[in-house]
Design a protein around this nucleic acid. Structure first.
Length: 596
RNA sequence: GGCCCUGUAGUUCAAUGGAUAGAACGGAAGUUUCCUAAACUUUAAAUCCAGGUUCGAUUCCUGGUGGGGCUACCA
């Protein structure tokens, strides 16, 4: 990379000019701002103590040295303490010609022995997926792609929360009021059917609480004593005791949920290498807890419940096993962490989980470490922000949840409407048209969600999300489709750029050079996105690339250019841009259409 | 109450401690005998407040203030 070379030469310059050994990391090197002439900028303020000269003189001296010692540097200019370096067109041409044809340009060869275990999605089986899960799934899938592009092996895992009190609530409501209906008998998607009973449980439970409070109980007492919740807890105990009837119903209802989830996952385009079921893993956690108790790392209270005391580490006491011996969330997360460690010996484990669980993961890491598990230190919680609606936070009980399936339907419908309005579907077969609507609708949704920094809460305004202009997925898809159309025309006009010889000494116009520079940045963008675990960095990059290309395309003729060498050059830039757009969109899990 | 996150144009988002704080949408005004106008061009518009560290702070630190989350024998 040229950046490293510049840094090294800067150190060299400082050594030669001022007799001081400099660490390359301490040199400020950045991309030159748009309005200023130059490709890279060295900020010399921090070197003034060493040079004991003015910023201008220091920058000029270093610039002169670099120009003399690096053939890639054509010229430079100095503004205050900013040394702006201009690389030669020859350098950019060499980059272009060498990399445009590399199929895996920007990607890193596999270079890590141990995989990264990446958990995402992790639904509960008591209700269908909603907008929050969509953010989770898109982030998880995209991160896996980004990590792979950085040379990691990735094991995508899903931990299905298929047991616990929440499932028992749906089961109880179904037993009471279900009349043996099934997805088949109602035509409802399985996960939605189960969700219906979860909502029903909550409604009836609320009513019971209300009654009890009317009879003089406090709210807290009422919440604990309401017959429905007591019965749901009884079902949980029966389940843990493997009561056959309970297990049968549980299996049936979970089966419905899985069928529903599979459809949603497939539509969303996400997948997993390994699915863990909490029902199969929670006992491992129990075992770990018992071992921790034996070694006196954990404590047992009089009622028999088992706790981790983390007060020395600034946290609280945390329950790990209830008095009745049943497991809690933390118990099973301890168990699955251990399972994953045993199975994959990962270099790290990443959990894509909402930021409301920050505390949970603090505790998880600390408890594992307390139990003597070194890998606890290599657990990384990718804590993403909430998705809010214009009306405020989504609340399942208040019916303000945006359902994942409904949302995708809506996006597809809008994609179809808009595409037909523009007359773009006229020449397509039904099959191609449907595929296109799907590509555009999902592209819009995915891009809208992934372009936001994962850590931040985001606002989801349905009206804005279905916009196809500006910084959107379809804008980028459109840019790609135009490039493909251009290339098709080029090849039918007989321009086979692969065979053509471009002179490496061709002078570049600003728009040509800017586009090549953006392509050059693809590699470092992937690295940065991998380090920060942020698909948003990729998204911002593609937008910048596409936007810049549209300008290039608007201002400069490609096929109609008179100079045949320039035609080949511009086709080459176009083809390269198309391939980088496609690859970056792939990193986000977004498809691009060949025409639209 | 305690702990954590957060506050940038009207709105949604950007900006490894660096130059005149960038985009998009929305607003205003333009560009089709020309490779796809789902495009392009021009234009108005913002760093919550007060201190501190620094040659330099949207960025780091402290206090205040607004918003969100966690603080369950739910997950």
């Amino acid at each position: 990379m040229i950046e490293e070379k510049i840094l090294a030469q800067c150190c060299h310059a400082v050594q030669k000019l001022y007799g001081h050994e400099l660490n390359p990391a301490s040199v400020g090197l950045e991309k030159t701002k748009k309005e200023i002439t130059g490709d890279f900028t060295v900020v010399v303020f921090s070197l003034l103590k060493i040079s004991r000269k003015s910023p201008e003189t220091t920058a000029t001296e270093i610039g002169t040295f670099l120009q003399q010692n690096m053939p890639e540097i054509e010229t430079f200019n100095v503004i205050k303490g900013f040394l702006n370096l201009v690389l030669s067109d020859h350098f950019w041409m060499k980059f272009l010609v060498k990399n445009a044809v590399l199929p895996d340009f920007g990607f890193c060869k596999s270079r890590h022995e141990h995989p990264v275990v990446l958990e995402y999605s992790s639904p509960n089986t008591n209700k269908p997926l909603h907008l929050g899960h969509i953010r989770n799934n898109l982030l998880g899938f995209s991160l896996a792609e980004i990590l792979k592009a950085n040379g990691h092996k990735v094991v995508k895992v899903n931990l299905v929360n298929d047991r616990g009190i929440h499932i028992c609530k749906s089961m109880l409501a179904y037993m009471r009021w279900g009349n043996h209906e099934t997805p088949g008998s109602t035509g409802m998607k399985g996960d939605h059917l189960i969700g219906k009973y979860y909502v029903l449980f909550d409604k009836e439970y609320k009513a019971e609480i209300h009654d009890l409070i009317g009879k003089g109980l406090t709210e807290e007492e009422a919440e604990k004593q309401a017959p429905l919740i007591v019965e749901a807890q009884e079902i949980l105990r029966k389940w843990e005791a493997k009561d056959p009837e309970t297990i049968t119903l549980w299996k049936e209802m979970n089966g419905w949920a899985y069928q529903g989830f599979d459809l949603t996952y497939r539509r969303l385009g996400v997948d997993f290498d390994h699915i863990y079921y909490e029902s199969e893993t929670y006992l491992h956690g129990k075992k770990l807890v018992m071992e921790g108790l034996d070694s006196e790392v954990l404590v047992q209270k009089e009622d028999g419940s088992i706790w981790a005391d983390l007060r020395d580490e600034g946290l609280d006491e945390k329950l790990l096993l209830r008095a009745d011996g049943t497991s809690v969330y933390m118990t099973q997360d301890l168990g699955t962490a251990q399972l994953r460690y045993d199975e994959y010996r990962p270099s790290s484990m990443i959990y894509v989980v909402g930021n409301e669980q920050n505390y949970h993961f603090d505790v998880l890491k600390k408890v594992l470490t307390k139990l003597g598990m070194e890998y606890g230190k290599h657990i990384y919680h990718l804590s993403y922000g909430m998705v809010e609606l214009p009306q405020g936070r989504m609340k399942s009980r208040e019916g303000t949840v945006v359902d994942a399936d409904d949302l995708m339907d809506e996006m597809l419908r809008t994609a179809e409407e808009t595409t037909r309005e523009l007359g773009k579907a006229d020449e397509l077969s039904d099959e191609d048209a449907t595929r296109l609507f799907n590509t555009i609708g999902l592209g819009a949704l995915k891009y809208f969600i992934l372009k936001v920094d994962p850590k931040k809460n985001m606002m989801f305004d349905p009206r804005e999300s279905i916009d196809f202009n500006g910084n959107t997925g379809p804008f980028i898809q459109y840019t790609y489709a135009r490039i493909q159309s251009l290339l098709a025309k080029a090849s039918s006009a007989g321009f086979l750029w692969e065979d053509a010889k471009i002179s490496l000494h061709l002078p570049l116009l600003p728009l040509e050079k800017e586009t090549i520079k953006r392509l050059y940045q693809f590699r470092e963008t992937i690295v940065q996105a991998g380090e920060e675990l942020s698909p948003a960095i990729i998204a911002n990059y593609i937008f910048d690339l596409a936007k810049g290309f549209n300008q290039f395309y608007q201002e400069l003729p490609v096929l109609k250019e008179e100079d045949p060498e320039k035609v080949v050059l511009r086709i080459c830039i176009s083809k390269f841009t198309g391939s980088v757009i496609k690859k970056s969109m792939k990193l986000l899990g977004i498809e691009v259409p060949e025409r639209m």
